[in-house]
Design a protein around this nucleic acid. Structure first.
Lengths: 370, 370
DNA sequence: GTGAAAGCGCTAACAC
DNA sequence: GTGTTAGCGCTTTCAC
């Protein structure tokens, strides 16, 4: 470790009384192809280890005009769905021999654009735009820079998108809630069910549509006051549910909570009620969090297939350029949990499961109750 | 967008009938310093926008021998403490005009090393090693590559470390648990309290030491069977608690759960018990998760100050090289939650709270282990 | 089998 | 005020 700079192939070449090109090919693994003598190669490798050589990937990238990086932007990391998505993305990137760079953008369009530009400047091979607030502007930036990209979680109209089958997932979740409502109170004929949380984005629209579609089919008269698209923030969902409660004088018979964030607010409000009252309500949540399984009332959850989504997205990026902006739907999985949720038999009745290219979505069995 | 390649400063220079250096200085913001005419600058900027120019950061980095990247390795993203740490890291990086790259390593030493080497090869300016299983080997790799770095969450002996004040946090958490035990059952004289979860790593040792220290002071005879360092995995913690329960024929009077991962297993077991039994146990958890607040029994949690830790780490990296491997302790925060947790008055009695945050971080020698 | 040389896109010293 | 030039560390013909 002589001087104060990193060792380069030239340093090694000098010490090995060889040339930079020989050293380079030894050190990047192409030496067999170049028919370098094994002894030369070994000598060079030894020196490289001794001097703690590490290749300068910026130089290599510049020369080869490829970086080996693959980028993903994501709204935030502190939300289980997104952190799972990020982990799946990382894993898949490595399998593709790419180096993953995940950056969160806090749902800020300006931040999203700046981040995309930065990643492009770092010459990423491809870009995953997950949950972007304005995917089409980002697509435009990518297009002009000729960077392959794909939307994930929220669709755009200028690039392929891979998203959960929100409609089907909502149909099935709603069906499970309805079944549970009926088993909780078989006598009642006119029951109410609220949809809480979400923003006017594509996913919420699809989930709402699935919700309504299932209810229509089940013979419900959907009252507009049931639909509380309050925003994703927990306090908004909490306020919305409080409003519903005040209006009805009780909880609705069923509750479709749109996202675990909204669920936080819902849980906070439910905490203020007697447990029996809470247990008399059939509760479902679109999205999954482990801890929801430990609440003292049962919750049916929809879990999105992050691995499937990521796999599809990579498939699209690797395949030939597709025309238009197809939307690939990935089936979701339903999970029923919690105390007293002994209604296995009902789950999945209303909406039939579909198989998928990725692997069939499954309905898992509820955990053992007390 | 004429040809099929990205525009470079040469393309723009040609179109502007100017030179590459002029274009470069206009586009990287140093043109005022170079006294370039405003009109020239504007003309160049216009062309740059029109051609969707984006600087090649690999080339810039190569030339300036700095990348503007700052890296962090982290065990996994799907754990709330780590995802918070990653978010705080990103935020701080941006404030420092650096581009954050977070990579998870799944607690695999080989993966950690490979990732550190990869980040070094990308010429990161500095490296945050968070929760590394083998920080000293990584330090050695960094040292040989002359890359500044700092350990976070788990300390090493070859570089500065910024970690939570696990000892103090455990003392205070234990104190709060003891207070609650006493208020739940003021009569009893001989009570038991279990420590569940964790691995034989530095943090667990410190927490155990704090646990014992507090109990000693409070007059408890610590029984070895109370200490269940079962591993972090939830099922191990679950099994450990089940064992304790079987042995005692009931829950211990107090429970110190080491990490939210272990808590998952604990919660799963507690679910199988009658609620009254659970509520008769004073429960604390070292680490915080929002959903634990919504359980139907109160839990006192210790929340680590991720922003403080990250701020300290950046401070160290920016400051002059420090000799040795100091350990900076960042105070934790205690949060009491849940129904029936009206024992606020007790919290913090046993161990006094300290004015916290970054200012109060202090340097110590590593503590003795248990 | 191996070396010399050009060049990836950019910056910074030095010209003029 | 602006252009010329020499690299940053690497890969990749092409030459021998």
């Amino acid at each position: 470790m002589p001087n104060g700079k990193k060792t380069t192939i030239y340093d090694i070449a000098k010490e090995a009384r060889s040339s930079a090109s020989t050293v380079a090919s030894v050190l990047n693994g192409t030496w067999q192809k170049r028919r370098i003598k094994k002894s030369t190669a070994e000598a060079i490798q030894k020196i490289a280890v001794k001097r703690a050589y590490s290749p300068n990937l910026q130089a290599r990238g510049l020369r080869k005009s490829r970086s080996g990086l693959v980028g993903m932007i994501i709204p935030l990391l502190e939300y289980r769905f997104f952190s799972s998505l990020a982990e799946a993305f990382e894993r898949a990137a490595r399998a593709e021999q790419l180096y993953p760079v995940v950056v969160s953008t806090l749902r800020d369009p300006a931040n999203e654009q700046a981040t995309v530009r930065a990643l492009i400047s770092h010459n990423v091979e491809a870009l995953f735009l997950a949950g972007a607030t304005d995917p089409d502007t980002l697509s435009e930036i990518c297009r002009r820079a000729r960077v392959k990209h794909v939307n994930v979680d929220l669709p755009g109209s200028k690039a392929p998108s891979v998203i959960s089958d929100n409609f089907q997932g909502a149909v099935r979740l709603t069906g499970a809630i309805v079944n549970r409502m009926r088993s909780l109170d078989p006598a009642s004929s006119r029951q109410s069910i609220s949809f809480i949380g979400g923003a006017p984005d594509y996913n919420t629209q699809q989930r709402l549509a699935g919700f309504r579609s299932c209810l229509d089919e089940a013979g419900f008269q959907v009252d507009p006051s049931w639909l509380q698209v309050s925003g994703y923030e927990s306090y908004l969902a909490e306020a919305a549910l409080r409003g519903v409660y005040a209006q009805l004088g009780k909880l609705p018979d069923g509750l479709f909570v749109n996202s675990t964030t909204a669920f936080e607010g819902v849980a906070r409000f439910l905490q203020t009620l007697p447990l029996d009252e809470v247990r008399a309500c059939a509760i479902g949540c679109f999205d999954w969090d482990l801890y929801i399984e430990f609440l003292n009332f049962p919750v049916i959850m929809v879990r999105q297939n992050v691995h499937g989504m990521i796999a599809e997205a990579y498939r699209i990026l690797k395949g030939p350029r597709v025309p238009g902006a197809p939307i690939i739907l990935v089936p979701t999985e339903m999970i029923a949990t919690g105390k007293q949720s002994s209604d296995e038999d009902h789950i999945g009745h209303v909406a039939e499961q579909r198989a998928s290219s990725i692997g069939a979505a499954r309905t898992t069995k509820p955990r053992r109750s007390v």
